[in-house]
Each structure stands twice: as structure tokens, then as C-alpha cells.
Design a protein around this nucleic acid. Structure first.
Length: 516
RNA sequence: GGCGCUGUAGCCAAGAGGCUAAGGCAGCGGAUUGCAAAUCCGCCAUCGUCGGUUCGAAUCCGACCAGCGCCUCCA
């Protein structure tokens, strides 16, 4: 069964067939690095990291490129405000972006090309467009002549007539409002690079055309980005690249939905807001806005102080990527409680087998994880879960549906553990069957890039003394319980609970759980 | 105004013509437990409204209502 994906170009789901058999090139539009990234910047990278993992697991050799736009009006403005160079600002913000990506487990990106490192390629690209008659020079600027491109508007489905084009001071130099800048002449105090048209800097869209060509070729497989980039960014990229090359730039265009910033009020904002009576003073709270425009868009690094990168990743993957997501901390906390189900099962696995779930090998290829369930009803159900997860993933990377099935699998594994008394009286036979199921959970979560490493140990757990003291308390409490002195036992448990430490009396003994 | 997206339980969310409409969070009942915690079992929706197509629609079509995005160099 083939992988299908939704192509913005055709507005339909299409079977995935790479340009070259077995190889896949993906270009994702990354950030303009002028301020710290917020959670909205993580949506694309997480889904495309997942897509790459999944395609690789399905046997494709995948190259993933995420560009860094490090020259732009906003960078210039911000660097002037802060009194540092544009390069220094870009450096700082790129480092922030990289740390954030690492935290959410995005580590499959092959190239992070920077616009300023590709000025030669950009100048060459612009020159080619001029030579072919698709662009014109105007007073040190270079503009793309939209009227020369009969296909202009095919991605966003707009007609040239309705375009307003870019405003700004350079507008008069353009022949048509819809034309857009390929190269902008520099003002005296602005950073610039030499070019045949005088000192200047690249326009917004050209770096993606130039860098994708360099790293992935004239026609590559998947071009991704946020839904807000469909117009004008991707439309203009297509115009530049396809007029220059005469071949499609990308076969499939994938766009992720945008993160909406709900207010701290949490529940408010978003699609379901139904204002029965417009309450005075309530209006501001009712407005959900796009992260990029919202002043409430906290730096992602701040969010990471409260929630793990894995929680965020799980949150982002628990809905389909094309759907808009309302962000609220309450939602993150709900997701976090769902994650506990997985962590709880991993802890059980450790108790039963003395092995870490995280050490289980993940399959490299889809077919490696296939197995014959035989007649065992448990394994039959595990097998079915696996199929259901893969069906979801094959269908336009439906990670939300896939995660729903993973919860089923977790319940299945817990039930088997309960029913066969694996924690109290493990039998090698049943443990082996259970492990077969755990193995499937391992491989399926790995394809989503989840649970690749144990959650960061808390500060308390890193302290050697804490576990020892807890063990001591637990053993004292065990003696009290043996003597049926439940008052003393409960006092210990209650006291620890007030410190956020949970005690679980299990068949094999008492387990303590530290707060996150 | 133009183009487009969305509306499924208290909240989040999968499903896109036909099995009892996944799953998570919250809640309720039960098993287990000395009591808890964790886990398991059970309960909790006719799919924005109105019409149409169809033997049959949450799923297709139309209208309407509501929210949102782009058309302003925001992923």
C-alpha cells in the first residue's frame, strides 16, 4: 500500500512516487532568524523530521534541507535596535533555533543552508532570470516580471489582477504591483554584497530557489513550509525556479497548519469560541491570533523550562499536521498526563525484565518489524495495532490517528502484564510474548521519533542521596506495614506526597516516583 | 471584497458514503489495594444549522451560521 500525501498544488491526496526511485529530497522553509523562536517555529521541523524518519523506514534515502534566512529587513531593523551587527544577531538566533530543534528531537536535518553563505549562487540565479527575460533591473534593484509567467498563481490559486504586491519605498520602481524583488539595492548603512547591479542584498524568496537548486537539484520531491507561506513566498519561489529551469521545482507541496496563540485563559480562543453575549472587556481574551503576530508568543526556550521537549513533540504530533493547533499550557499539561501512560509502562518493563525500554532496538526498515502473530490472541491484537498505525502514517502522515492507536497498544500491553502477573510471578514464556509486543511499541514510537532517550533525570534523582533516603523510608514503612501499623505507614506516604513524591505499593515491592 | 481552511462528547482529537463514530484529558461506577497510587474493566457523542443526492451521509452537493488564515517579507 503506497504512501499518500496531500499536495497543495493539486489540492488532493496523491500517491507518493519520488522523482528518482528510492531517493527523496525535501526542502523545508526554515526561520528568518531575527528573534528567538517560538513554539510555532517547531511545528514544521517536527512534522518533517517525522516524515523523513518514516520515509527512511520505508526504504527511501532521504535528504532533508532546512534553510536559515539570515538576511532580511527585519534582521537589519532588529540589529540596529540592539546595536549589533546583522551577522551577530543571526548567529545568536540561529543558535537558539538549533537548541530548540534538538530539544524537540529534530536531528535528521542534513543541511541548514544560510542565505548569506550563498550570495554567489543567488546572484547567479538572478542573472539567469535576467538573461532569460524574466527579470528586469531598476535603479539597483532587480524585480521578477510576473507578467512573463503564464502560470503565476497556480499554487495559491490567485490571479495576477488581484495581487497588491509588496508596498514600501521600492514600489515605484516596479513595472507592476505584482512584481517582487529578487535583489534589493542597499542603503548606505545597510549590510550589502557586491553584484552586477550594485551593492545590495537578496530579496526574500530567491535564496530558497538558489539553495534548493544547489542542494537538491532543479526538481526535487517535497517542498514544505507553514500554510502562511503559500502566498507569496512559495508562489514566488515557483515562479523564479520554474521560469528559470522550465521544469517543476517540487513534485509535492506540503503545508502545515499554523499554531494559534490562545490566551493564558486557556480555553478561550480558537474555533469553538461561541460568544453568546459579547462581554465587555472580554473581547481581547476572545481573540486567538497567530503566534507570529501575537505578543503572547513566548520564546520557546522559556517553554522548555516547564515542559520537556518530548512533551512538546508529542503535543505537536497528536494532531494532523495540516490542522491548526490552539496553543495553551493547559493543553500541554493534558498531553503530558497522557504521556505518563507510556512512561508508566516503560517503568513496568524495567521492573519485569530489568531492561530499559530505551535500549530495545528499533527496526531500521518497515519489513524488519513484521512478524507472524500465530494464534496468540494478544499477539494478534498487537499485530493489528501495528497495521493500524502504519495505515494512518501511510495516509498523509496522520500522526494523530497513529498516536491514538499507540494508546490502544499501551493498554493491551498493560492488560497482558496484569493478566499474566508479570510483576509478581513472571513466567519466561509469557514474558517473552509480552516483550514481542513491547518490541512493536518500540519500533512504532521510534518511527515517530518518540522515546529515543529516557526523560532527563530530575535534579533530585541526580542527587545520590535522594534515592538512598527514599529507599530507607520505604523499608521503614514496609516494616510498619508488616506490623500492620498503617498509621505510621500512611504518615510516611502522606508526608512524601506533600513533597510531590508518590509511593506505589506493587506486587514486587514499593516503588517511588519523583516529581518532574 | 477576493482566495482558502475549519466546526465531531465538558475539553482535545481520529474518522471523509455502509461494521457498536478511534484515542487522550476530565468525570462517574467497578476490579485490585490494609487504605492509596498505578493498572485493568465498564459508563459518558447521532457528528454547527437547514435542505438535497443516495437503499444508506459525520462523510457527497447547496444555502446559512460561527471561527480562523492569506491577500501586509509571519513557520
Amino acid at each position: 500500500m503506497p504512501i499518500r500525501l496531500y499536495n497543495t498544488l493539486t489540492r488532493t491526496k496523491e500517491p507518493f512516487e519520488p522523482v528518482q526511485p528510492g531517493k527523496v529530497g525535501i526542502y523545508l522553509c526554515g526561520p528568518t532568524v531575527y528573534k528567538p523562536s517560538h513554539i510555532g517555529h517547531m511545528v514544521g521541523p517536527v512534522i518533517f523530521d517525522t516524515i523523513k524518519r518514516y520515509l527512511q523506514w520505508n526504504g527511501y534515502q532521504v535528504t532533508l534541507v532546512v534553510n536559515i534566512t539570515d538576511v532580511d529587513d527585519k534582521l537589519i531593523a532588529e540589529s540596529q535596535v540592539r546595536g549589533i551587527s546583522m551577522a551577530a544577531l543571526a548567529e545568536e538566533m540561529t543558535a537558539d533555533y538549533m537548541r530548540n530543534l534538538a530539544a524537540v528531537g529534530v536531528d535528521t536535518v542534513d543541511h541548514f543552508p544560510r542565505a548569506t553563505a550563498h550570495i554567489d549562487e543567488i546572484v547567479a540565479f538572478v542573472s539567469e532570470l535576467i538573461a532569460r527575460g524574466y527579470a528586469y533591473v531598476a535603479d539597483g534593484d532587480v524585480y521578477f516580471d510576473v507578467s512573463r509567467d503564464p502560470e503565476y498563481g497556480k499554487l495559491s490559486r490567485r490571479s495576477v489582477e488581484e495581487m497588491q504586491g509588496e508596498g514600501g519605498t521600492t514600489a515605484e520602481r516596479k513595472r507592476s504591483a505584482a512584481d517582487f524583488a529578487l535583489w534589493k539595492s542597499a542603503k548606505p548603512d545597510e549590510p550589502s554584497w557586491p553584484s552586477p547591479w550594485g551593492p545590495g542584498r537578496p530579496g526574500w524568496h530567491i535564496e530558497c530557489s538558489a539553495m534548493s537548486r544547489k542542494l537538491l537539484g532543479r526538481t526535487f520531491d517535497i517542498h514544505g513550509g507553514g500554510l502562511d507561506l503559500v502566498f507569496p513566498h512559495h508562489e514566488n519561489e515557483i515562479a523564479q525556479s520554474e521560469c528559470c529551469h522550465g521544469v517543476p521545482q517540487a513534485k509535492y507541496w506540503l503545508h502545515n497548519g499554523l499554531m494559534q496563540a490562545s490566551d493564558e485563559v486557556g480555553k478561550i480562543g480558537g474555533r469553538h469560541t461561541r460568544r453568546a453575549e459579547p462581554q465587555p472587556g472580554d473581547q481581547q481574551a476572545q481573540e486567538a491570533g497567530k503566534m507570529g503576530k501575537s505578543k503572547g508568543a513566548a520564546p520557546f526556550s522559556e517553554l522548555l523550562k516547564t515542559y520537556s521537549g518530548e512533551t512538546i513533540r508529542f503535543f505537536l504530533l497528536s494532531t494532523h499536521y495540516r490542522r491548526p493547533i490552539d496553543f495553551s499550557e493547559e493543553r500541554i499539561r493534558e498531553v503530558e498526563r497522557g504521556l505518563e501512560k507510556f512512561y508508566g509502562l516503560f517503568a513496568r518493563y524495567q521492573r519485569v525484565t530489568q531492561k530499559s525500554f530505551y535500549d530495545l532496538p528499533a527496526t531500521r526498515r518497515r519489513e524488519d518489524g513484521q512478524f507472524e502473530p500465530g494464534q496468540d490472541p494478544f499477539l494478534l491484537e498487537v499485530h493489528t495495532c501495528r497495521e493500524r498505525v502504519l495505515e494512518n502514517m501511510d495516509d498523509d502522515f496522520n500522526t494523530g490517528g497513529a498516536i491514538g492507536v499507540l494508546f490502544d497498544l499501551v493498554r493491551l500491553l498493560n492488560r497482558y502484564c496484569d493478566e499474566h502477573g508479570l510483576e509478581s510471578a513472571p513466567q519466561p514464556q509469557t514474558v517473552a510474548v509480552w516483550e514481542r509486543g513491547m518490541f512493536t511499541l518500540r519500533e512504532l514510537t521510534a518511527t515517530l521519533g518518540l522515546f529515543r532517550a529516557p526523560p532527563q533525570a530530575t535534579h533530585a534523582a541526580r542527587d545520590e542521596l535522594v534515592p538512598r533516603l527514599l529507599d530507607l523510608l520505604v523499608s521503614v514503612r514496609a516494616e510498619a506495614r508488616a506490623a500492620r501499623n498503617f498509621a505510621a505507614a500512611d504518615r510516611i506516604r502522606q508526608g512524601l506526597a506533600e513533597l510531590g513524591i508518590t509511593l506505589e505499593d506493587r506486587p514486587g515491592g514499593t516503588v517511588w516516583v519523583l516529581p518532574k
